[in-house]
Design a protein around this nucleic acid. Structure first.
Lengths: 339, 339
DNA sequence: AACCCGGATGAAAACGTTTACATTTCACCG
DNA sequence: CGGTGAAATGTAAACGTTTTCATCCGGGTT
């Protein structure tokens, strides 16, 4: 049924070996025969059977991506970055996402076994034990946004610390001496780093002020509660830095209800630059994460890990973030309009 | 290096055929030997070489998804639906997205050749000719959101028409006799269907009123311009239905600048239910599209097309939408708060 | 006791490539 | 003109499965 290398060989009156060589660009074949074979292959619409090739070469030209249940923008951007880089390298992308728990993730990881040359892993369930049990050590892998320190895998993180540090500094620079922080879940790696960035920036640039931290869990609701707490506080704050945008949105709602004006009475900032951030009123100052870059870098790391198996692992890399200043931290009377 | 079926066979003192049978659940093997083989396979961490298997079975257990350059939420939800359904069926998902033009899409489609058992195709560049040239007719495929009428492939569409029809009716029901429409790009299939839904609902439920349509192109800017046009109009409208949410957002901004209050002076509705919709002020009434369902249905269609190659194609299916009523079309004094 | 039948197992072919090794060809040199 | 070596091409093994067909074995039937 399907046309194989034999059909091409017969038609071109050469051996299958020559066809293989011609099509794979081996130098050991005349330009003339290469031409003939190529044109015949094209005419017959021959396409090599990838399974047969994989069987002998032990390469699938495919990278697997293991992702948790991610929200909209982040997921899209990450895949975009990965996909673009993969296509540039001629690699395919096998995706398995939406894993609710560690068992699902483990099953998915094992199912990819042998179908991929390397893996991109982003999952809150991943720890050293998990990997040892579910990932053959021969498989190159890159861990995204993981607290894990591994010599076996590359680790690629967002610079949560740097972003939070810079944002805290921005709020202090704008003259808001008292900056409060709304934290994320205790066990969340991103949240921990962001809080650390806040603390250290406070210590460095406002040594006299004390850091003030309200607990949250990244949900809008928790931001709302934190906002109520802060609004009622005896010592009013001049600026609030939420560990993510959703909490900032909730906090904004609480402030509105309490009659606090943003940014006139209190400045507000978030983290992530979700699409909503620029459309709420006032538009939210936040930290933009270059998610597509994260995906691209991750793919490139795993690609080189595949090409050069012996090479030393990178130290854990981090990817820079940008502070994006919008109306919520800018009391200068400019109209609130999407940036 | 890697453990093969031979290693398991040797260890179990049995032929490779028996191992294959035992592991694939063939009835022609004693429960006792099956047990023994299974436990040995587990102990050796044997995992069948998928390429070798594909070579002989002609199946890859993989579905390919060809997607254009999609924006955040839509992409994520679609993949989520596809991914979940794929996992339920034990299928893998090969993704190729972010295609800017027809040539890129064609290249990606051809590259997937032989690596997948079936395809999910969502692309503005797809027409009959494109498919004939790039998709082997033996490959089962499902077209998403395509204007194409094909007997060869299943086609799965969002019920743009029904959603727009229902929304127009909702706006009319609320007493807003004059409903204007902001259209999308002329060549866009979704936009055409939505406009048709609006027109026919107007003709059916408000035969005396004339349909009033302002051109747009799905961008926020175009919504803003349309809003200015509508605000200045000599005959003021009581309700505006934008063909997508982004234009509704732009329109809202124009109305705010013109001093028009939403919903008191004019009701406003969009289409898509993007995440932003519920966070703007007032929250936007819109049509929710069940994107994950679209993905799930598409995957299930292609899966059955693979399992039962001979069966008759479905007529083009459409997936229902829901009208989501929020503050922007509800002048009842309820507080504006996320739903 | 000869026969047959069905169930469990094994031997080997087949899938479509790549590649190590063998063979042919041919120009060039002594 | 035979020999040499490099370049081009061919032959066949190998990759790890699944599956067809053959074999073996035990028990029931005649």
């Amino acid at each position: 049924m399907a046309v194989t290398i034999r059909d091409v060989a017969r038609e071109a009156r050469v051996s299958v070996a020559s066809v293989s060589r011609a099509l794979n660009g081996s130098p050991a074949v005349t330009d003339e025969t290469r031409q003939r074979i190529a044109s015949i292959a094209a005419r017959l619409r021959y396409v090599p059977h990838s399974a047969a090739r994989s069987l002998i070469t032990k390469r699938t030209q495919t990278i697997g991506a293991l992702l948790p249940d991610l929200y909209g923008e982040f997921f899209s951007e990450l895949i975009r970055g990965i996909d673009l880089a993969a296509r540039a390298k001629g690699l395919h992308l096998l995706v398995s996402s939406s894993h609710g728990d560690a068992d699902e993730a483990a099953a998915a990881l094992r199912a990819m076994q042998g179908r991929v040359d390397g893996m991109l892993i982003l999952s809150p369930h991943v720890d050293a034990e998990f990997l040892r049990a579910n990932l053959p050590e021969s498989t190159p892998a890159v861990l995204l946004n993981s607290a894990l320190k591994s010599t076996q895998f590359d680790v690629l993180n967002i610079d949560n610390y740097g972003g939070a540090h810079a944002m805290t500094r921005h709020l202090l620079d704008a003259g808001h001496a008292g900056v409060a922080f709304i934290g994320g879940p205790d066990d969340n790696f991103d949240a921990q780093q962001r809080e650390r960035g806040y603390r250290e920036a406070m210590a460095a640039f406002a040594p006299k002020a004390t850091a003030k931290i309200v607990a949250g869990d990244f949900s809008e609701e928790s931001g709302y509660h934190a906002g109520r707490v802060l609004a009622k506080d005896s010592k009013p704050v001049r600026a609030v830095f939420a560990a993510n945008d959703m909490m900032a949105v909730g906090c904004l709602r609480a402030f509105a209800e309490a009659g606090l004006r943003v940014p006139q009475d209190v400045a507000l900032a978030g983290f992530d630059d979700i699409p909503i951030a620029r459309y709420i009123t006032p538009a939210l100052t936040t930290v933009r994460v270059r998610i597509a870059d994260l995906g691209r870098s991750a793919l490139e790391s795993v690609a080189t890990a595949i090409e050069k198996p012996g090479r030393a692992r990178n130290a854990a890399q981090t990817l820079a973030c940008d502070v994006v200043v919008r109306a919520s931290s800018r009391d200068d009377g400019r109209p609130t309009k999407p940036v």
